[in-house]
Design a protein around this nucleic acid. Structure first.
Lengths: 213, 213
DNA sequence: CTTAGAATGTGTACACTGTCCACAATGGCA
DNA sequence: TGCCATTGTGGACAGTGTACACATTCTAAG
């Protein structure tokens, strides 16, 4: 397969939105091959532009990868939001809060399974707590995945399902569990397990989080 | 720093143990730069041999990386074993079993923190359940990390601290939690947290596993 | 002990990558 | 209108993985 989307040859010297085009190309490449597959030159090729043009918008390959990572995290947030929004709220705020936290986990794992390449790309760039709430990593709702977990935990606290002490830094625990499962499912020992096994593992993992947080 | 270990220029045409030398070089590179830093040509350079010589021992770069990954997993196993062996056994087999499981987690996290590059390399190669017990991934005690978790869980079962039903596939849960924490600590949002924070997160995570498994 | 052939290492070559530098086209603003 | 900051181009270089043909050495069969 050649690298040729329908891409009109561009009639003006300027591209118009090269940065966006490169990012999109990067996302496409990451989707099919993970972080290692995002290649600067190939991105410029897909954008119909010379290799060096990329350097007007990204300091280097790593910077492009970083942008891809951020965008992918935004997609994770969107996928999570789908699950969260689908939660039917009932009369019991406690149950609602639990369901919300589970939904976050479900969305996270769903994204990892549906788009393993993007998932790996999302976490291929070293990060830290300061940047975890960077708006560039947010989904359409304006929240980063990390913040979504936080919201769900806040809801648990508000519903009285969690003491203030346990609430403290609980995102680390929930996040670790779900992130670990995601990694193991896409290219760890759990890879290739059938749907049923993975569903079961996910359910039990979320049980563990609920019970153990 | 140039790439020049004391490496005698080798007087015979044959190397003697080129495969081993390449693997060692790969491990060295992985240690300082993670999986992406393991470069075929550089490995041959360090072994004092021409680039193509590597192909007599590894099908391609990926094969070398795979070998590095396996060896690194063996080191994880060794690090875990140190913690497990350090557990003082008491009169209560139940408490002992719990302590053993915690030790596995502690060792895992310790390795990730002490050797993040090797840790990342260890999990950079797609794997699956069939291979999780491959002897090539085992440490000196002959167990792979995955098997070590299994042993600890078996001990919990034997001590009556876990029902047979809960024991089933419990490695997935424990592994996910610990693996996730490891990843987040070395280059996720938890990166750069101070010693105390990480200790606390580890302790609470292991609490969660004990309680929630 | 010789010698054929299997193992192992070398040399040359190619396509591809990231990135640097000097130059060209363009668009907006004084 | 004309200047100049922005954005894209062209050419170049070092470094990478890997293929192919060739050289050296070890080993085992006669």
């Amino acid at each position: 397969m050649t690298s040729d989307p329908i891409q009109t040859p561009r009639n003006s010297y300027r591209h118009g939105d090269l940065r966006g085009a490169l990012l999109q190309a990067g996302l496409d490449m990451a989707r099919e091959g993970g972080p290692d597959a995002v290649v600067l030159r190939e991105a410029t090729r897909r954008a119909g532009v010379s290799p060096n043009a990329a350097y007007r918008h990204f300091a280097d390959r790593q910077a492009l990868l970083h942008a891809v990572s951020n965008a992918a995290l935004g997609m994770v947030a969107d996928r999570i939001q789908v699950e969260v929004d689908a939660v039917a709220t009932g009369p019991d705020p406690r149950a609602d809060a639990h369901a919300q936290l589970r939904a976050v986990g479900e969305g996270y794992i769903a994204f990892a399974r549906e788009d393993p390449g993007l998932f790996r790309a999302a976490f291929s760039v070293p990060d830290n707590l300061q940047n975890a709430n960077d708006a560039a990593k947010a989904g359409e709702a304006g929240l980063t995945p990390f913040q979504q977990v936080g919201r769900a935990l806040d809801a648990l606290l508000a519903a009285g399902a969690l003491t203030a002490e346990r609430r403290q830094n609980a995102e680390f625990l929930a996040w670790s569990a779900v992130h670990g499962l995601g990694m193991l499912v896409i290219d760890g020992p759990l890879r290739g397990l059938d749907e049923r096994m993975i569903r079961s593992a996910t359910d039990r993992l979320l049980d563990m989080v609920e019970r153990g947080i």
